[in-house]
Design a protein around this nucleic acid. Structure first.
Lengths: 157, 157
DNA sequence: GAAAAGCTGAGTAATTTAGTTGGTTAAAAG
DNA sequence: CTTTTAACCAACTAAATTACTCAGCTTTTC
């Protein structure tokens, strides 16, 4: 498991999708615009996300992407797994015999560590991220105090 | 926070150091040999680790590196922080106002997520990794059954 | 059948990772 | 006090990954 900006882009994009797809498919062009990413890069990421069934595509005019599952059932780890190449941590093919056992043990350890991080991120759903988002926006609105044009929580652009 | 092979190399190297420094300083050449890494790359990593006081250097013949603290007090997150560049996730300088609030919220979320992973890895010490290592070796020995030259748990090369 | 979108692949620029080279200092040993 | 050992350091290069561009194709709606 890797954790880089690529994974962040993917999570951000899926979250953006989740926040906008209630009324129908969302185009990558829209997400690219909102998140300031290149359309083609998003296409590449979503190609992987679609193959991993994190998202669903709807082709043709009025088309775009929808979530492949409920927000509760999509975890951050799924998204990251879909887009990041898996680091093949083993030089020994999992035989446990590289470098007289020593090096292999240490990278088995790393694998364990990764598994733990993975397990942790598996427990974080898009739904929970959205909830935080809503909470944060409410918090921001409260910080700003009463206004003529309240920064409403609708989350539509 | 990033989580890449670079961080893995650093964790592996520090773990190797921890497993071998009981009888005195360990040279990078030894670690490079055991872990199959280039000496110069290790030098770069250890330069950062030393500045972060994860390790201590002893110069001259018979010199090498020692741990900067007890194995209980060195966490995986410290090691990774020392070697990986910090991803500046904010395009807005933390003002919370980039892209009309929306993008900024999502990357604040990412920041939160990172903080959680970070907190998690802060709880994993070198000591606990070593313990796992010892346990694993015992397990391996047991799997292999009784032997003439038992794969003893001494952990010295 | 034109337009809107997804889909695909080849290519490229920028960044990061990993390694190389060629030194210099500090300390120990002889 | 000279040699050796090993850390320290900086500039450079190579390889890999990330991010993007371009150019076209396919599916679906109007």
């Amino acid at each position: 498991m890797k954790l880089t900006t690529k994974g962040r882009y993917a999570v951000t994009a899926v979250l953006d999708l989740a926040l906008h797809c209630e009324k129908g498919p969302v185009t990558l062009a829209d997400i690219a615009e909102r998140q300031k990413l290149s359309l083609s890069y998003l296409e590449q990421l979503f190609s992987k996300l679609r193959k991993a069934e994190v998202v669903k595509a709807v082709r043709g005019p009025g088309g775009g992407y929808l979530l492949g599952s409920t927000t509760e059932n999509i975890s951050v780890s799924e998204i990251i797994d879909a887009v990041e190449e898996k680091v093949d941590a083993t030089q020994c093919g999992g035989q446990g015999d590289c470098n007289k056992g020593m090096a292999c043990l240490t990278h088995t350890l790393w694998q364990d560590l990764n598994d733990q991080v993975h397990g942790f991120l598996k427990g974080v759903s898009i739904a929970s991220l959205m909830e935080r988002s809503a909470v944060k926006q409410v918090a921001l609105r409260q910080d700003a105090g009463p206004q003529d044009e309240p920064q409403i929580v609708t989350l539509e652009d």
